[in-house]
């Protein structure tokens, strides 16, 4: 579901600015440990679930996020739900994105933060519009995200 939550939208714009500043900073100081932060993510998005608000960025793989949550016993549950929904989305449009979208990242962070039961329907997660951080321009949700999150 799409949201116009004021706090989330305003902070999404702030997050966009932060991403730009980080990239410029890492390049100027030539920070060798942050080579993957020399590039802007193609897309960022904000997600809200209950009172939790988080931001996600498109990336090669978000699997690294799961290591943060190994004590929550939630990662496998999320994995199961998301995989299942993806499997369905996969059948419906024939594409498999392997969880690289910013929406997945943001949704995962929200669900982990909530430490609650995984909702039966992922359409309970609310999303801001997706932005291209470099330009702040709106990017259309991909077909898989539309199917998975009911956007």
């Amino acid at each position: 579901m799409r949201t116009n939550d004021r706090i989330l939208c305003k902070n999404l714009q702030n997050y966009c600015t932060k991403v730009i500043c980080d990239v410029q900073y890492y390049r100027i100081v030539n920070c060798k440990n942050q080579k993957d932060d020399y590039d802007y993510p193609a897309v960022i998005v904000g997600c809200k679930y209950r009172s939790f608000r988080r931001f996600g960025r498109s990336a090669g793989s978000h699997l690294h996020q799961y290591s943060r949550t190994k004590n929550l016993n939630l990662h496998s549950a999320v994995d199961e739900v998301v995989s299942d929904v993806y499997a369905r989305a996969d059948k419906s449009n024939g594409k498999w994105y392997d969880r690289t979208c910013a929406e997945d990242h943001a949704a995962s962070l929200c669900l982990f933060a909530s430490k609650e039961q995984i909702p039966n329907s992922l359409s309970k997660l609310e999303f801001t519009i997706a932005l291209r951080p470099r330009t702040g321009g709106e990017v259309e949700y991909c077909n898989t995200c539309k199917a998975v999150f009911g956007l």
Binding site: D36, D39, Y40, P41, A42, S58, D98, T100, P133
Partner: peptide, 27 residues
């Protein structure tokens, strides 16, 4: 990796027809 390139907006550089160019990859 293709995956990395598809999910990032990379600034890259090259000479095209003798001119210095910057490209924003936009995925």
């Amino acid at each position: 990796t293709t995956e990395y390139q598809q999910t990032n907006d990379i600034d890259w550089f090259g000479i095209v027809n003798g001119k210095p160019c910057h490209f924003a990859s936009n995925g």
